[in-house]
């Protein structure tokens, strides 16, 4: 299969849907002439023009609110927010408007709206440009939350978002943009929401890894294999809807869980996942549910401090080794 980078896969999903459906359009800060600050929309302005690849003023409230209004009235907007940290600037529109429109209207409002946003620490970007804010929205019923880790998933999940009828927050980790992987060419290739991917099978421990932590978990699993420990690596891919079953089945087999994400540990996605497992899979557990996550401090500028705060492969290894698994 041909390989694409993560950002190429996202661009391909958007461009294909825009060719197919005239109601799909992209709007955001510098998505057009500038090609997006991360280059994700490279060439799209040239192909689709400024009407459908719309540069907006620096106005996050307006970007999200406009996209919502357009979605309610027949368009399928993709609204890009440059950094997930800036989602807070549009906080009311997301939390009180976008997420609640369908429910509050008794199902009358249709909200086919995709909010694409970059997430995670690109290195020394400081406390306001590095956050992984997926879990801020977990407590807001009404938005779907998608956190892809591979180019194929990025494309297939984005297609599902663009063809769906619900608002989606689509989190793209900046350090994944350049990563490459096989991506199907079929223009109808879609990855369903609410279906976790078992990326590597194993019987000794389950590592649940989100976003940038997936490649790190796979590296860790490789090392663990040399020690005779067979780690199963699972990527939930979407946090809302959430695929409990795949995780519980895995835990039933391994009895041990490590949850890895780059968001802060307190209140991060792992808190919710751990709670679900504690409620529904406790009988299978042979040890504590461990979380590998960023420490509970703002992300520092200094690389010395930042590396200390962010989770890495070593932290996953340490967590798994703490189970003192004796390979059979």
């Amino acid at each position: 299969m041909r390989e694409l980078s993560f950002s190429e896969a996202i661009r391909e999903a958007m461009a294909e849907e825009m060719r197919r459906d005239p109601t799909v359009f992209l709007m955001g800060e510098d998505v057009g002439v500038f090609n997006g600050v991360w280059g994700v929309s490279q060439g799209m302005y040239d192909e689709f023009g400024g009407e459908r690849v719309r540069d907006t003023p620096i106005s996050e409230i307006s970007i999200i609110g406009n996209a919502l209004g357009a979605a309610m009235t027949g368009m399928r907007p993709v609204a890009e927010i440059m950094f997930s940290d800036f989602l807070m600037c549009a906080g009311d529109q997301i939390a009180n408007q976008v997420a609640k429109a369908r429910f509050m209207s008794g199902g009358k409002a249709n909200v086919p709206l995709t909010i694409r946003v970059t997430t995670g620490a690109p290195g020394s970007a400081g406390a306001q440009h590095s956050q992984s804010s997926e879990s801020w929205f977990l407590n807001i019923p009404g938005v779907k939350i998608v956190v892809p880790s591979t180019p194929a998933d990025a494309k297939g999940l984005l297609k599902t978002a663009l063809r769906g009828e619900d608002p989606v927050l689509f989190f793209e980790h900046k350090m994944l943009y350049a990563s490459k992987g096989p991506v199907p060419e079929d223009p109808d290739f879609m990855v369903p929401f609410g279906k976790a991917a078992v990326v590597r099978e194993g019987k000794d421990v389950t590592i649940i890894a989100l976003s940038i932590m997936l490649p790190k978990a796979l590296e860790a699993a490789e090392e663990l294999a040399k020690e005779g420990i067979q780690a199963e690596v699972i990527d939930p891919r979407t946090l809302v809807p959430f695929d409990k079953d795949t995780l519980i089945q895995s835990v039933a087999k391994t009895g041990r869980v490590v949850i890895a994400h780059e968001a802060h540990k307190r209140g991060g996605p792992g808190s919710e996942i751990a709670a679900v497992l504690a409620e529904e899979a406790v009988e299978y557990l042979d040890g504590p549910i461990l979380r590998v996550a960023a420490k509970n401090v703002p992300l520092p500028y200094s690389p010395d401090l930042e590396n200390y705060v962010l989770p890495g492969k070593q932290d996953i290894l340490a967590a798994v080794r703490s189970f003192k698994i004796h390979s059979k």
């Binding site: 800036f86 020394s124 400081g126 406390a127 306001q128 703002p298 500028y301 200094s302 401090l305």
Partner: peptide, 22 residues
């Protein structure tokens, strides 16, 4: 070393901070 260019400040001089948020 926590702030960097984007968050540099000097409260003694009344500089309440650069800002990463436009």
């Amino acid at each position: 070393g926590r702030g960097g260019s984007l968050h540099i400040s000097d409260y003694d001089l009344g500089i309440l901070g650069a800002n990463g948020i436009v």
